[in-house]
Design a binder for these strands. Structure first.
Length: 246
DNA sequence: CCCGACCTCCTGCCGAACTA
DNA sequence: TAGTTCGGCAGGAGGTCGGG
């Protein structure tokens, strides 16, 4: 468990901390990681797939689908060997149309590579109105982590992914239980260290509770009754009578 | 429950850079 | 010098999350 500020990017980053800490302390690396779409960003997926070899059972943060009836970038075919897209009319979208005298990396500040069709190809194309009605040519911005996004897209179509979604619910229920039943919806201790301490204690209690459930038999009834009275707060103005455990 | 803040991805625009 | 490509950026879409 890792406490962070209520800030999404920080929360997502803390996953790396937790995975690496477990790796370091127990020499265990997860085979797959199940989470919501907040973790489906390109850099996070790249970290899972390329750096850690973890299967991302995560929905991809993807907005390639167009709603105005024009072709989405999914309609373009990616040619890995040629490092180019091909449009539905068979024309290429390249990142390098010119041989620059000074070599360029082609990677933008946003860690993307821009692929464009030729203006001349588009001008003569019968599909232009369905492809790039508002611009002289078509542009596709491809993340440098697109390969990792493709891995997540492939996994999202498998039955294993559906199974993972169900398993995720079980984990989420523990947090829901912490918040609702154990009333850990607000922290008493201030600061990140306070939050860490409070959560560690809450998680310990929750684990002990689950361990107790796994015991074949509960402790003797008399002990349980005494424990009950020790932990019970007397109501004001009422005497507490010992109660028999059932 | 609704609203605003914040985040990522994507599109379209525009000036800079480059070539013929 | 004109035409084309390149890269950055603003802003929209759509999602999550916290606070009132």
């Amino acid at each position: 468990m890792e406490a962070t500020q209520a800030h999404r990017t920080t929360e997502v980053e803390s996953t790396k901390t937790m995975v690496e800490r477990v790796e370091e302390r127990f020499d265990i690396t997860p085979e797959r990681l199940i989470s919501d779409i907040a973790y489906g960003t390109a850099p996070m997926l790249a970290w899972m797939v390329e750096e850690k070899g973890i299967e991302p059972h995560v929905p991809v943060w993807d907005k390639t689908e167009r709603k105005d009836g024009t072709f989405s970038s999914n309609d373009f075919h990616w040619n890995e060997e040629g490092e180019e897209y091909r449009c539905l009319n068979g024309k290429p979208l390249r990142s390098e149309w010119r041989a620059f005298t000074q070599q360029r990396s082609r990677v933008t500040k946003a860690n993307t590579i821009i692929y464009r069709s030729s203006q001349a190809d588009c001008a003569a194309c019968p599909l232009k109105a369905k492809c790039c009605p508002n611009t002289p040519n078509r542009k596709i911005v491809r993340s440098i982590h697109e390969a990792a996004r493709d891995v997540a897209r492939r996994i999202a179509k498998t039955p294993e992914y559906i199974h993972s979604r169900c398993e995720r619910k079980k984990v989420e229920m523990l947090f829901a239980h912490l918040k609702r039943i154990m009333k850990v919806d607000r922290l008493r201790l201030r600061g990140l260290t306070g939050a860490t301490d409070e959560f560690t204690l809450a998680a310990t209690v929750q684990n002990l509770r689950r361990m107790a459930k796994l015991l074949p038999q509960g402790p003797p009834a008399t002990v349980r009754a005494e424990t009950l009275e020790l932990t019970r707060k007397p109501e004001p103005g009422r005497s507490v009578k010992p109660r028999k455990a059932t």
